[in-house]
Design a binder for these strands. Structure first.
Lengths: 213, 213
DNA sequence: GCGAACAAATGAGCGGTGTTTATATAATAA
DNA sequence: TTATTATATAAACACCGCTCATTTGTTCGC
C-alpha cells in the first residue's frame, strides 16, 4: 500500500477536520475517535498522527474553524440593523441560532480546555476576542465615548455571558416537549434591561477599569 | 476473598462517591475511571457495577451532591445581607467562589449531560430549580409584586446565566498570570445594570409571560 | 457440626480508546 | 536501474467501560 502523493498533507488535514466535524455534529464529542476519523477519510490511525500531534490538536483545530464560522455568521447578522441595540439583538439571535443548530460542535468550543502553551492556543484566543469585538463595537456605538474602552470590553463579556447562558438553556431543553417556545424574548429582555441600566448608571463613577477577569 | 458484609451497599456507594469526587477535584473528568474509583476504595470494578448501573449514574450522583453542596453554600451566603440587591451580590460572590474552588467538579455539573429519562434526572432538575429559587426570592423581594412570578423565574435565569458566564471566565483564566485580579466587580456591574434596567422598564408592558425557555 | 443455599466479590475477557513504532511500499533522485 | 526518501500501514501497548462465570464467605436448616 502507501498511496504516496494521492493527497497532500494539507488535503488530508482538511478531510480529517471535515470528517471530525461531521462525527461531532451527529454523534457528539463521545462519537469522535481517531480511528473513526481515519476510517472516514480512507486512511488508518497512524496517518492521522502524521498530520496532527494528537487528538487534542485536532479538536482545537475543529474549534478554531467553528469560531471562524461563528464569527462569519455573527458578522452577517448585522446586515439589516441600524440602531446598536437592534444590532445587539441581531447578534444575540444569530448566536443562539448557531448554538442551537450546531449544538455539539458549539459546546465543544467551550467545554474542551485547550491544554499546553502552544501557538495554537493564542490563535484560539484571538478568534474568541474577534467575536467579542463585534459586541464591543455595538456597545461603543451605543455609549459613544462616554465609557472607556476597557469598561466596554468588560461590559461586552458580562453581557455576552448572559446571552451565552441563555444559549445553553436553549440547547439543554430543545429536545424536551415544552422546549418548543422561543428563547429570543428572554435574550432581548436581558439585553434591554442591561442596556437600560448602563445608561442609568453612567456618570455615577463606578468605574470598572483595571478589573480584568 | 469476598468479604461479605464488611461494608453495606450504601457504605460502598458513599465511599465510591467520595473517591470519585476526590479524583475529579484533583485530576478533572479525564482522571476519573471505574477502575481508579474501585481501587481507591479497596474493591474491584465489578463491585462498582453492583452498586451503580454504570459510570454515568455515578457521575450524576456526584453532580447531585455538588448541587446540594452549592445550594448550602449559597444559602449560607445570605446570612449577612439585608437589601435584596446586596443579597444578589452575596449569591453571585458565593457562586463564583464555589465555582473557582471546585472548578472541575462544578464544571462537570453543567458539561455532563444526564442521559436517559430516569428518576435521577428529575431529582437532578429539582436540585437545579432549588438553586434558582434562591435568586428568584431576591428578585421577588426587590420588585415586590409588580412583576409576575413567571417573569421573575425567567429574569432569574437570564441574570444568572450572566453570573454563570462570569464564573466560567474566572476559572478559565485563573491559572494565567493576569488572572489574579478579581472578577467580582464585573459580577456586581452585571447585576446592578440589569436591576437598574428592571426598575426602569417596569410598567412599559413588555411582558415575558409564557415565554418559557 | 454439616451440607446446602445464598449473597458478595472477584478477575478474566470483550471490544473499544489514544498513541507509538517497526515495517513495507510507492515516488523520486542519482 | 538503483538508492533514497517520504508515506502509509498494521501491530502492539496500556488503558477504558462493562459483563459474567466463578469463587468465596456467610448463614440457615437439619
Amino acid at each position: 500500500m502507501g498511496r504516496r502523493g494521492e493527497h497532500s498533507k494539507s488535503e488530508i488535514e482538511n478531510m480529517a477536520l471535515e470528517a471530525a466535524e461531521r462525527l461531532i455534529e451527529t454523534q457528539g464529542y463521545s462519537g469522535l475517535s481517531a480511528r473513526k476519523v481515519a476510517t472516514a477519510i480512507g486512511y488508518t490511525v497512524g496517518s492521522l498522527y502524521f498530520v496532527f500531534k494528537n487528538l487534542d490538536e485536532l479538536i482545537q483545530r475543529v474549534n478554531g474553524r467553528t469560531l471562524d464560522q461563528l464569527y462569519m455568521v455573527l458578522k452577517d447578522s448585522l446586515a439589516d440593523c441600524r440602531h446598536p441595540q437592534d444590532c445587539l439583538y441581531a447578534l444575540g439571535s444569530a448566536y443562539i441560532e448557531y448554538a442551537s443548530e450546531h449544538a455539539h460542535r458549539w459546546r465543544m468550543v467551550f467545554e474542551h480546555q485547550p491544554e499546553g502553551e502552544g501557538l495554537l492556543k493564542e490563535i484560539y484566543e484571538d478568534k474568541v476576542d474577534r467575536v467579542y469585538a463585534l459586541v464591543e463595537r455595538q456597545l461603543a456605538a451605543l455609549t459613544l465615548n462616554r465609557v472607556s474602552e476597557e469598561e466596554i470590553a468588560l461590559a461586552a463579556r458580562a453581557l455576552w455571558s448572559g446571552v451565552h447562558g441563555i444559549a445553553i438553556l436553549r440547547i439543554n431543553y430543545q429536545l424536551q416537549p415544552e422546549g418548543q417556545k422561543s428563547v429570543l424574548p428572554l435574550m432581548e429582555h436581558l439585553i434591554s434591561h442591561y442596556l437600560a441600566g448602563f445608561d442609568l448608571e453612567q456618570g455615577e463613577g463606578e468605574s470598572l477599569q483595571q478589573q480584568v477577569v
